[in-house]
Design a protein around this nucleic acid. Sequence first.
RNA 1: GUGAGUGUAGCUCAGACGGUUAGAGUAUCUGGUUGUGGCCCAGAAGGUCGGGGGUUCGAAUCCCCUCACUCACCCCA
Length: 416
Amino acid sequence: MKVKALNGFKDILPDEVVLWRRIESVARSVLERFHFQEIRLPVLERTELFARSIGAGTDIVEKEMYTFVDRQETLRPEATASLMRAYVEHSLHAVRPVQRLFTIGPMFRRERPQKGRLRQFHQLSVEVVGSASPRLDAELLAMGAMLLEELGLSASLEINSLGCPACRPAYRALLLDFIAERLDRLCDDCSRRSITNPLRVLDCKNPTCRAEVADAPSIQQHLCPDCADHLDRVRKALEQLGIDYCLNKFMVRGLDYYVRTTFEFVSGELGAQSAVCAGGRYDGLVESLGGPAMPGIGFAVGLERLVLLLQQHDTVSSSGPSIDLFLAALGDAAGERCFRLLHEIRRAGLRADMDYGGRSLKSQMKQADKAGAAHVLIVGEQELARGRAPMRNMMSRDQVDVALDHDAIHSAIDRG
RNA sequence: GUGAGUGUAGCUCAGACGGUUAGAGUAUCUGGUUGUGGCCCAGAAGGUCGGGGGUUCGAAUCCCCUCACUCACCCCA
């Protein structure tokens, strides 16, 4: 019985790693332009951290966490909580007034895997702490759009406001009344949701529910003056930056800490999972974790969802890493000479390889071709005696005679 | 946690009214040149037909159980 990876846990093979590195390099480039710094965090935290930040009643905390029950330690289901913990623990507010931080790494949720959803998955998590400016909201959205654009992907942006502790309770009560009047016409899930999280009824996919709630009271009409003003300013700032978006009054987020602005970049090509990048504002979170009263906003990008999109868009030029030189040795004596030469060539900074299997020249040439070698040095008995060997340019098929010396080989390769 | 679908070579899949030794493409290896790659040709190797049980003279094929995976619901990146 072969040992296999756990369900929901995936190996990322070399061909796919090419895509991952492309995504990470584009992301780092964009983030640096927006003056973000990287932070690296542990994957295991006290369980309490997630219960307090994400919310004890959320699905994530209630049924999806990998927890060592005896130790009260949990593999992180997302990064924002960890990042805020680090922010508070190291008093990062005292280092600079506004902290722009990002982190990339694995997250763990014990859900049933499906397309675009794994139990170990990877996120780029971006957070800004220390500013409540609506311009920051817009800037962050513009950055998300830039990231997707530079990856050659298109996704549409939807935004909403969830209000704040001042206005949400009143709206919630209003919505609850609206739902109560037509509870008998809503699906089973929705009647459950009306108790656990009424806002979520708005988000139901069931067509009859959708029709029933189509003219439900909109939170945007019931925001307090401050929240309404914030949303207006975010929209104005987005327009100033030329960022397309649409308001989605039905969009709800599953984490308790979100207030005011929430958003999603959605794609229609991901199966049932449409969000590639989502987040929102979380003023109050830092304070609730024992830190100073600092506003914050951030988003997470689902990296395997980006990989999925890139694969579908067929922009994949999966050219594996190539080498500068392949050493083809014929016979034991040549093999020994090449073995030493190979090491010297690598020390000189070239990417090089050879075969130890004592195969035919033809076979070694094939190998070199597959490895994407730019040059092949062919060494047999005669070459050993002469101290020189033919070096073939695999692209032009030209061969030049070079000394069996790493300096000579290096400069011959530099000349082409 | 719930529902549906799929398990045959490393990968993608044929084969299904039960009937010789389970196939193809691709990838791998060898050869077609005493020592020269891509294309082409020939050959080799590669399988507990997911596993277990049953029906039968005979099961990849029919029945039951089980496991795994996939998609979807819930929820989320």
